[in-house]
Amino acid sequence: MQLISDLFPFLNGLVQEGNYVTIVLIVLFTIVINLKNIFNFVNEFKKNRLSNIESALSDDRLPSNMKYQLTSELSIEYFSLIYGVRLSTPMINAILLLNERIKQRVAFRHLIIISKLTPNIRGIEHDSYRVKLDKFDYIPLIYNALLGIAILSLGLLIFILCLISSFQETHFSIVLLSMFFMLVGVLLLREARAFLSIHYINDALNLYQKSNN
């Protein structure tokens, strides 16, 4: 409570000084810090939906075709709740099939990463299958990678300059801005990690195919 009571005069001082950039950055950092609570709320919603589906499946009056559909929905919801990504039934089956082929060489999280990009799964029943994306799917990956490197570098540069210069209270907003840039840069690079995942998966598939020949 003491922290909260001390925070309001601090924010009031920023408003009076017209330091709105610092206020915006504090709000953004607060949102980032509380992302876990937001995700927990979403997970609770998913759990409630799972409960509703399971209750419906236990009802003997439900038609068989409806039960088949709800069983498929149940698998999708469980997968989404556990791995944090909602996929179609064919994509889930494709990911599980690839995992059987490469689970000894590549972590399952790499399959989850590439599944978000909905790669073409045509011909996945053959050992010659390799993960490929459409040309347009590479555009956001390249964009996120280049922009992430640029923003992260800018944030590091600003932070280093603040450390080199004489540190005063007036530098607070600049340090906060540099930390925000670094955070955004890391998040953008994280979104571009599919490049590495595709490389690891396809290398493992090459070894799998050679071992079966």
Rank of each mutant, 00 (worst) to 15 (best):
I139V: 15
L177R: 10
F181T: 00
V184M: 13
I113N: 00
L157Y: 12
D59A: 08
L81A: 05
F180D: 00
S75K: 15
S173C: 01
N144G: 02
N120F: 06
K116R: 15
N212S: 13
I38N: 03
A204C: 10
T118A: 01
H199C: 04
R122D: 07
A204S: 10
V106Y: 09
A56V: 14
C162E: 11
Y78F: 06
P63Q: 04
P90E: 04
K210L: 12
L205P: 07
Q104G: 06
K103P: 05
L81K: 04
I26M: 14
S165W: 05
I92S: 00
V27N: 10
L156I: 14
N65F: 10
A194E: 03
H126Q: 06
F108C: 05
Y138E: 00
Y143Q: 08
L161F: 11
S165R: 07
I151Y: 00
H199E: 05
N93H: 11
R49I: 09
L207M: 06
Y129V: 04
S58F: 02
N120R: 13
I160E: 06
F45Y: 11
L97K: 11
R105Q: 15
I95G: 00
S178Q: 02
L152S: 08
S115L: 03
S115E: 00
E169Y: 10
V106N: 02
I139R: 13
C162V: 08
Y143C: 08
T118W: 05
L97Q: 03
N93F: 01
L207D: 13
S75E: 10
L207C: 08
N65R: 13
N40S: 09
K103S: 15
Q69K: 15
V106A: 01
S5P: 01
P90F: 04
S165D: 13
